[in-house]
């Protein structure tokens, strides 16, 4: 027989006692195989489950890191364009033939225009208001939570975990 607390304990037939004892031994072995510190980690997890404010953090971090990356990219592009324009400007100071001056000035003016247009575009990209999209993503994130939460909601809806 086993160690179960059982009001309705019944006598196991002799022919099945062997297999029943073997199953009890397997159960003991499986419980004993739990990794060290399981209880402490589960306890910490329970305390973490109460901290609802910790959930939006990953989304916020993703958003912040995406903004920094966009700004760095924009800065690198700006430096490259300004550098190119500076080199072009310097090259015009080295005795160009008088007949080419007009053409070069037009070219330089075009480059500066392009530079300003690109800068404006980058500024626009960096300052695009994504608040609405982010709010929507936050809402979805909050709604979904984790897959377990989703399953839990489904369970609750189906009354599987009715108390």
């Amino acid at each position: 027989m086993n160690e179960h607390d059982d009001t309705y304990e019944i006598e196991t037939p002799d022919e099945l006692r062997g297999i029943e004892s073997a199953l009890d031994r397997l159960g003991v072995a499986e419980r004993a195989s739990a990794p060290r510190g399981l209880e402490a980690r589960v306890h910490r997890g329970i305390r973490g489950a109460d901290d609802a404010t910790s959930r939006p953090l990953p989304m916020h971090r993703r958003r912040t890191s995406a903004r920094v990356a966009a700004r760095l990219t924009a800065l690198a592009a700006l430096v490259a364009v300004v550098g190119g324009a500076w080199v072009a400007l310097l090259s015009t100071n080295h005795a160009p033939p008088p007949s080419d001056t007009g053409v070069r000035l037009v070219s330089l003016e075009q480059s500066v225009d392009d530079l300003l247009a690109l800068e404006a575009l980058l500024d626009e990209m960096a300052s695009v208001d994504t608040t609405a999209a982010q709010d929507e993503a936050d809402e979805i994130d909050t709604m979904i939570g984790s897959p377990w939460d989703m399953i839990e909601k489904l369970d609750a809806a189906m009354g599987e975990e009715a108390i």
Binding site: N2, E3, H4, D5, D6, T7, Y8, E9, I10, E20, L23, D24, L26, G27, E30, R31
Partner: peptide, 12 residues
Amino acid sequence: VELRHHAQLSFK
């Protein structure tokens, strides 16, 4: 079998 021998629940 699992509820009985692994989870140690009573038959009730």
